[in-house]
Amino acid sequence: MIRYSQLYWQFFKKHLKVMMEYRLDFFIGVMSVVLIQFTSIFFVKVVFDQIEDLNGWGFYEVLFIYGVATMGRSIHHIFFDNLWTIGWQYIRPGNFDRLLIRPINPLFHLIADRVQQDGFGQLVIGGLLMAAAMPHLGVEWGPVNLLILLVLIVSSGAIFVAVNLFFATLSFWIVDSLPITFAAFNLSDFARYPLNIYHKGIRWLLTWLIPYGFTAFYPAAAFIEHSGYRELGMITPLIAVISCWLAYRFWKVGLRAFNSTGS
């Protein structure tokens, strides 16, 4: 574990160096993500100018959900973005073999191979959203609450990673599962609004099957008195652990299949 953290730091330093070499691209990347995100926040703002609440959720509460979602996504985008590329950059051209002749965990190697700079844009916007929303929630932001928030955000990121890992693993059998991963990832957009506006079936799907609900809505609801989902919100870390475990098991199965067929 310590060895892997040190190793990750070595990888990370290299990526950082490359980013700083292309500083302009880095800032343009970050700024463009911020801009695009801003449009959807502006959308929420414009709508809330006309109404007081959305199914009982006020403007700042919806912003808070948005913020948690964006923070969770940013963790996934910055550090785990390479999962997207497993099919077309590793398995199809035969580069996955390279990972398999290294004396380290191939999943670690895959993840460490890339740091996605645009994810920093999400981090910025997520941070701004949180800062804007948090003072208006009627929550006392003491150290305990902040710690819980941090844990929930990390869990949110972990769930994003787990779902993507699960679908990316399909690439071991079908070479490139990117369209499927992309389709599944789209479901996470549901989680940006209070889940109780949706049909029961959608809610169930996003809670128990593809747990994107735990990437934003439930963890945010954990802090909101009247949400009715405080308990469900608090089990987010548990859901994250279970999802990651399942996804990793699936990855292992896929890897074994790859070991017996090659490509």
Binding site: Q6, L7, Q10, F11, K14, K17, R102, P103, I104, D113
Partner: peptide
């Protein structure tokens, strides 16, 4: 590693191995 200078690549390999 595709994007980084060869020397840095070697340095990473040093840590990996």
């Amino acid at each position: 590693f595709w994007d980084i200078p060869v020397r840095e690549s070697y340095d990473l390999l040093r840590h990996i191995y």
